[in-house]
Amino acid sequence: MNLSVKIGNVKFLNPVTVASGTFGHAEKYYNLEEVKKIGAIVPKTVTLNAQAGNPPVRIAETPAGMLNAIGIENPGIDKFIETKLPAFKKIGVPLIISILGHNDKEFKEIARRINKIKGISAVELNLSCPNLKHKTLVAQDPKATSRIVKLVKKELKIPVLAKLSPNVTDISLIAKAAEDAGADGVSLVNTFTAMVIDIEKRKSVLGNFTGGLSGPAIRPIAVYMVHKVYQTVKIPIVAMGGITCAQDALQFMIAGASMVAVGTYNFVNPRATLEVLTGIKDYMKVNKIKDIKKIIGSLK
């Protein structure tokens, strides 16, 4: 059975990964023998300088999902490399590092620092965090998307993925802009801008006022968006949005995703990522599929 997939020139042993911002402290809390089996790990987005994150309340439970407005709390790229990366590397699973710059210069500088370190398989550009008070997201503007992808591609030899926002009229236009600018793949979707109101206080529940909706609640929209992007671009798609099990993940793969990531559901079932992998293998066995590529984009 061949489960391997490629992004740019990098091969991943299987298509199952975790979504940025939903996986951490594996060294303390996870069975690393099990974690070793997944295709890749994507740690939380890092920025050039440390960020404290948004004031609480940062999360809210919603029907079949959640809102978050964490605000990319992270130690900054240098501290990340020094204090967090070693534990991730030790797991021995390919790493896709998610980065975010607040302007062109920052993206370039982070890329340069990543270039100096070994053992990273790919970079994911977070062009789509809805929780940072920017008026428009990079991934809401095809020109800005193109510019950032180009400038990071110039710095990096390893594959670059552009992580897209679903908060757009036509996500395939942005995906196309990323492809034309040289991106090796696109990741979608990030969270949907949303809010929950406390009716007693008549205030928004979240400290950041709005947040990003994720979890099973968004899955059908995410599947549709992956389908739409697959119709438009040739580069591989890393898909996420409410995946809880292999059946969910397979919908995305049939729609055109080369890789699938479990995000929010890690919080509910911390074994979900591995169960997705096992379930995909079972599906291939039952349906006598020898190569995962036969599933990708196989929608009739």
Partner: peptide, 11 residues
């Protein structure tokens, strides 16, 4: 959400 220090939601 996670209770594992992963989501940074309970700060």
């Amino acid at each position: 959400a996670c209770a594992l220090g992963a989501c940074l939601g309970c700060s």
